[in-house]
């Protein structure tokens, strides 16, 4: 189901958590709400769920105004950051809860509940744990049970609050892939909150970047990465080198092959992989020295120090494939030349 948020604002005392949020989420998308902590992303998710009330604005789910609907009548499934499984119930009863609390006329029979719960537990591949209690499960298992429980009521929208936040790195990687596949199979419109840009880029089909209660940009992961709409998004998504044209950098950037003449902006963001380095062929004043490098698997991250005429030095990061770096046969302390292939300009 599609979701439409119009003019959502929320204040906590004097602090403005959300400021005039307008957002449209088409049916079947898997959307990440991405932003630093305190940016309002969890508040927005809770407002969509009905767990929190917006000070103003409307929430439409598949065209119907649900702003005044209680959380229990909104038709959403919510997966909590710390899972919030009912600790005194077995896994089976946890998943069955949403079916058992339905009003008598809508409540399915025991046989149907049984079948449905086992189907869901099979979907999350944990049917063998059906008679365990939550505290006997690992974090990853709890997460999947929480998901099965939320899916039991056949929600029109699935909302997940930091779904991988409390898991260790290896489990997180597996679950990300798994969630993507699950979403592909079920095709239920889903929104998840995360502060991890890598996670958002890897899992989501749409990313919404939030900062200070405002939407900075919405788009597919590649749009967000390749065409960041402002300096915040560019800096928040992936690594970036920031140069300020107000200082001595204009000349230097020109020697690196970047035309600064027709650009309107004053701040330049350059992705590390957009910097090409070569062994220096001639002496120049503003030389760049190779300081160190780190292996990131297939890539090498190169730490460079740029000395300016005024004696100030700044670090610049570049990335290139491992093989290519080996061919350059560079050592620490070597002078290098830079070529900047692409840059983003901001005010």
């Amino acid at each position: 189901m599609s979701i439409l948020l119009s003019n959502i604002s929320k204040k906590f005392g004097a602090f403005s958590a959300l400021d005039n949020i307008n957002l449209e989420i088409p049916e079947g998308e898997l959307v990440a709400l991405l932003g630093p902590s305190g940016c309002g992303k969890t508040t927005l998710l809770r407002i969509i769920a009905g767990l929190e009330r917006a000070d103003q604005g409307r929430i439409l789910i598949s065209g119907q105004d649900r702003t005044e609907h209680d959380v229990s009548k909104r038709g959403i499934g919510f997966v909590f950051q710390h899972y919030a499984l009912f600790r005194h119930m077995t896994v089976f009863e946890n998943v069955a809860f949403g079916l058992r609390v339905k009003p008598r006329r809508d409540r399915p029979g025991e046989a149907i509940i049984r079948k449905k719960v086992h189907d869901l537990l099979n979907l999350v591949q944990l049917d063998w744990l059906h008679d365990r209690y939550p505290d006997q499960l690992s974090g990853g298992q709890r997460q999947r049970i929480a998901l099965a429980r939320a899916l039991a009521v056949e929600p029109s929208v699935l909302l997940l609050d930091e779904p991988f936040g409390a898991l260790d790195a290896s489990v997180r990687k597996d679950l990300r892939q798994w969630l993507r596949n699950l979403h592909h199979d079920l095709n239920v419109t889903s929104i998840f909150v995360t502060h991890d840009q890598e996670e958002a880029m890897e899992v989501a089909s749409q990313v919404v970047v939030l900062n200070h209660g405002k939407i900075e940009q919405q788009g597919t992961p590649s749009e967000i990465y390749d065409q960041p709409s402002n300096a915040f998004v560019s800096g928040f998504i992936g690594q970036t080198n920031v140069f300020d044209l107000g200082h001595q950098d204009a000349d230097w950037l020109q020697t690196a092959g970047l035309s600064t003449l027709q650009q309107q902006g004053k701040i330049v963001h350059v992705r590390p992989h957009d910097i090409v380095i070569e062994k220096s062929t001639f002496d120049n004043d503003a030389f760049v020295i190779l300081k160190d490098w780190q292996h990131l698997g297939a890539l090498i991250r190169i730490e460079l120090v740029k000395n300016s005429v005024t004696g100030q030095s700044a670090s610049v990061y570049a990335e290139m494939p491992n093989e290519q770096f080996k061919l350059l046969r560079l050592n620490k302390g070597d002078k290098v030349d830079l070529k900047i292939r692409h840059a983003h300009w901001f005010h």
Partner: peptide, 25 residues
């Protein structure tokens, strides 16, 4: 109160939530 919020999000009424989640805990 996350378990209680979870119960509500699954469609339970306040009364139902109180008796089947709060009281057992």
């Amino acid at each position: 109160n996350q378990e209680e919020e979870a119960a509500l999000s699954l469609g339970a009424s306040g009364w139902k939530m109180f008796w089947s989640v709060t009281i057992p805990n």
